[in-house]
Amino acid sequence: MIEILLLVHLILAILVLSIRSLFTAVILMAIFSLFSAVLFFVLHAPDVALTEAAVGAGVSTFLYIWIVKHTQKEGE
């Protein structure tokens, strides 16, 4: 189970770095932090998993989407 989750993390991280569209990369980062929340839950750390799900998938995605929205107008 842990090995499969780590493999998914690796694939998602490579996708985030290599994809061209910034918006898709931000959404993939949110999926990445969702999977790391599942990993923390499997490792018996539910508190850390809740923090990761709330901060990683909620607030940091807000900040990244806001930044992408305000930097793309100057030309891609």
């Binding site: 508190d47 998993a49 809740l50 923090t51 709330a54 901060v55 909620g58 807000f62």
Partner: peptide, 21 residues
């Protein structure tokens, strides 16, 4: 249960931020 002030507060904030965004 698991959770607490910080995690719950961030969940509250992210619900408001969803409306804001």
């Amino acid at each position: 249960s698991p959770g607490g002030g910080f995690q719950g507060g961030v969940a509250l904030a992210s619900s408001l931020l969803l409306i804001l965004l």
